[in-house]
Design a protein around this nucleic acid. Structure first.
Length: 462
RNA sequence: GCUCCGAUAGUGUAGUCCGGCCAAUCAUAUUGCCCUCUCGAGGCAAUGACCGGGGUUCGAAUCCCCGUCGGAGCACCA
């Protein structure tokens, strides 16, 4: 199988579907898959030189290593050779009609005057194309199919055209005669031994087009599955490489790993495992209708992967300070993980005041249980320690909330899909390694990114 | 306009090829209860779907036709 991306930028989440599915199939059935960069349009789909590595990097994040990596722009001579052979078989002709002219003829099912040229002329003109003797638009090589085919999309399609703009890759920058996707891809699938193709519904006619070439060469066409488009809920930003690229350009997004961007680099930075994405993609199946992928299903997968190993911490967002009274303990020791007592406890110095989230602020005379600390009653604008047992919580009339010491807490900026949130976390958070995951109790999972003036974390999911 | 393709709960999916075991599977979501010093995890329960209409048949989610809705192609893009 193959994954044939157009290297025009880092991958968005939707791109993960192909490697997820073919990678999973490969592993399951002892198969083979390659990445083939279909970079045969140096102009309108101009490749981005950084994208080649960036895509392989994204692939690694998803947990797959391709069995081979190809670049179509390295293989021009191969395509030329096959074109020559095809000409010799009478399956192609050079054509100098303008796109418009040809389109009109084609739509009325009429052949253009170039269709019946003899092979020698065709070959001669094709060699001139290869040598770059024509300018863009002057000459193309058409694959001879059936000019009266009932589906106009299949009639004598273009196999090669001239492009004046040099390819961005140095190695390919001298070429001017470029194959179209259907030609290049069809040849490569055969040459690399691809037996099964998955592609989008936008390429529904590709197989039928390429079948003509396969017939000329007497090759057997691979099995094909077409799938619909994937849409992600939960994002304001459209899942499209060009849209994301523009937003970054305009500074509406920081970069490709901005938490608001629906990209793989963003999910990675938020601490989501590649496996969680892969599993969600595989669950989507390969149906030909469009599908909506719920981020919640990626989150559910991820939570299952990380919950057990992720330690707990407190983070209070936009805290309100309340003084403490009644001699509470000087230190709180909640467990690092409620299901793993063996991992030990946290040491949180309490101080004279705590921060609470707005939603958790008690009413007058109300009791509140500060997790890992004890029971307090809100009296005369102070949280008075009552010393009561956890039983009061079990009885049901005391809410349990998380908190942070007002004094010895560390400032945190949490980057989320909906923008940044600032808050303060228990002091231990300041010592966590970059890349570590935490669960802020009653807030959600987050990945520690870095410690600057404040600790920057990326919100993972609830 | 011409040509393809598709339609099962909020979302995804199984079942459709080879009609009966499907008053329709599983996951996720939402809600409620239990448990828990988290709104996490775990347990239990509830919610919720075969696009419509004809036909074939003893019997249709499944086969056929018509409609509706949706998607795609008709590029010298991928």
């Amino acid at each position: 199988m193959r994954c044939a991306p157009n290297p025009n930028g880092p991958w968005h989440v939707g791109h993960a579907r192909m490697p997820a599915v073919i990678g999973t199939y490969r592993d399951r059935y002892d198969g083979w898959f390659c990445v083939r960069f279909d970079d045969t349009d140096p102009e309108t789909k101009r490749p981005d030189l950084e994208a080649y590595d960036s895509i392989l990097d994204d692939l690694e994040y998803l947990g797959f290593e391709p069995d081979a990596v190809y670049k179509a722009s390295n293989r021009l001579e191969t395509y030329y050779d096959h074109a020559r052979e095809l000409i010799d078989l009478g399956g192609a002709y050079t054509c100098s009609c303008s796109g418009e002219e040809f389109s009109e003829l084609k739509n009325s099912g009429e052949a253009c005057p170039h269709r019946d040229k003899d092979k020698a002329t065709v070959l001669e003109e094709f060699e001139a194309m290869v040598d770059g003797e024509y300018d863009s638009g002057e000459m193309v090589l058409r694959v001879k199919t059936d000019i009266e085919h009932k589906n106009p999309a299949l009639r004598d399609w273009v196999g090669f055209r001239m492009i004046d703009t040099p390819h961005p890759r140095e190695e390919a920058s001298e070429y001017r005669c470029w194959p179209m996707l259907d030609f290049q891809s069809g040849i490569d699938d055969q040459l690399t031994g691809v037996t099964h193709i998955i592609r989008g519904i936008d390429l529904q006619d590709s197989a039928k087009r390429q079948q003509f070439v396969y017939d000329y060469f007497d090759w057997e066409y691979p099995e094909v599955v077409h799938w619909g488009h994937v849409q992600l809920d939960a994002y304001d930003v459209k899942m499209s490489t060009s849209t994301i690229s523009e937003l970054i350009e305009e500074d509406d997004l920081d970069d490709w790993d901005d938490p608001r961007a629906p990209t793989l680099k963003s999910l990675r930075r938020r601490g989501i495992r590649g496996d969680a994405i892969v599993d969600a993609m595989v669950e989507l199946g390969t149906s030909t209708s469009d599908v909506d992928l719920a981020m919640s299903s990626i989150y559910a997968n991820n939570r299952e992967l990380i919950d057990d190993e992720t330690d707990r911490r407190f983070l209070v967002r936009d805290g309100t300070e309340l003084p403490l009274g009644g001699s509470p303990p000087e230190e709180a020791n909640p467990p690092l993980h409620p299901d793993h007592a063996e991992r030990g406890v946290r040491e949180i110095p309490v101080g004279d005041a705590v921060l609470l989230e707005a939603e958790d602020l008690p009413n007058r005379e109300e009791r509140l249980w500060l997790k890992g600390l004890g029971c307090f009653q809100y009296t005369r604008d102070t949280l008075q320690y009552t010393g009561e047992d956890i039983e009061v919580v079990r009885e049901g009339d005391v809410d349990v909330v998380h908190w942070a010491p007002a004094e010895e807490s560390v400032p945190v900026r949490m980057r989320t899909m909906d923008g940044d949130v600032s808050g303060r976390a228990e002091p231990g958070v300041g010592d966590l390694e970059s890349d570590e995951l935490v669960q802020f109790e009653r807030v959600g999972f987050a990945r520690i990114d870095r410690h600057d003036d404040e600790t920057v974390v990326y919100y993972t999911h609830p």
